[in-house]
């Protein structure tokens, strides 16, 4: 592990006269979980879209360490190579599970889609792999033929995670993976995410406005405000001893039951 798996340098993205992200740089090491926190409109999601190549930044570079071809500039790759990367070595977990799932096909087909996209053509093997992954995300394998429409929010989120992890990606992007779930489901999902990132030594970039999520999952924290990074450091360090006034405000705004 002598080089970072993902390196973003000088990411800037504007929407007309409005700047969403300004000159953000960071490095992510293999197996490391980085949380990006900040209030709504601080540019977290735009940053995530830029580094996951779902959106082109106006300036800046994003480099990814591939398994076989060394470091590549993800925005300079051909579309074909980028899409292949996005469905093999990367995962993307949407805030709203319906955006990341195919709601009209069964859970098994959702998990198997990436395998079929990579050329798997044996129904029996695709199905057993799908059922295996449902178990790994702590879902009932009996529900493999059910439509995601019949699933609860927490189950949909689990299914979305299984669907992403089936190709054993090394880097996962997550956009508010637990918001919109009630607290007990949230806790279980966080627990699952934590064990999965450990078990498969996943590197992850998690965008969240929830500091508790960041504390549980992330090794490192990046605090954004108005498109700029105002503070960065180890999670415990930032949360226990915030330096920037905005971070201090964020930390003190957390409700204590």
């Amino acid at each position: 592990m002598d080089s970072p798996i993902l390196r973003a340098a000088g990411i800037t993205r504007t929407y007309g006269a409005r700047t969403a992200v300004e000159d953000v740089s960071f490095e992510l090491w293999p197996g490391e979980v980085l949380a990006v926190v900040g209030e709504s409109g601080s540019g977290k999601t735009t940053l995530l879209n830029c580094v996951s190549a779902r959106q082109k930044p106006d300036a800046g570079r994003v480099e990814f360490l591939t398994r076989h071809e060394g470091v590549v500039d993800v925005h300079a790759m051909s579309e074909a190579a980028r899409r292949l990367l996005a469905r093999t070595d990367w995962g993307y977990v949407h805030q709203n599970a319906a955006d990341g799932l195919r709601m009209d096909v069964s859970a098994g087909a959702n998990v198997g889609e990436r395998l079929m996209a990579l050329g798997a053509r044996h129904y029996g093997r695709i199905r057993s792999e799908a059922s295996d992954w449902l178990t790994r995300v702590e879902m009932d394998a009996e529900r493999i033929d059910d439509s995601p429409r019949t699933f609860s929010g927490g189950m949909r989120q689990r299914l979305q995670i299984a669907r992403n992890l089936v190709t054993r990606p090394r880097l996962v992007f997550m956009d508010e993976p637990t918001s919109g779930l009630d607290v007990s489901v949230q806790a279980k999902l966080l627990d699952l995410l934590r064990s999965l990132t450990r078990k498969y030594s996943l590197a992850a970039v998690i965008v969240t406005h929830d500091l508790a999520v960041a504390r549980l999952l992330a090794h490192r924290l990046m605090v954004m405000k108005a498109g700029r990074v105002v503070e960065t450091g180890l999670t415990d360090q930032v949360l226990d001893d915030p330096q920037h006034p905005y971070t201090q405000l964020l930390v003190s705004s957390v409700l204590q039951p």
């Binding site: 096909v105 087909a109 198997g112 889609e113 990436r114 079929m116 996209a117 990579l118 053509r121």
Partner: peptide, 22 residues
């Protein structure tokens, strides 16, 4: 169109998978 351009046809097998599952 992008899928045709890049010959990404895994999705069609999702439909067939779904048929067999059902």
């Amino acid at each position: 169109r992008a899928m045709h351009g890049l010959a990404e046809y895994g999705l069609m097998h999702v439909k067939l998978y779904e048929d067999i599952a059902r």
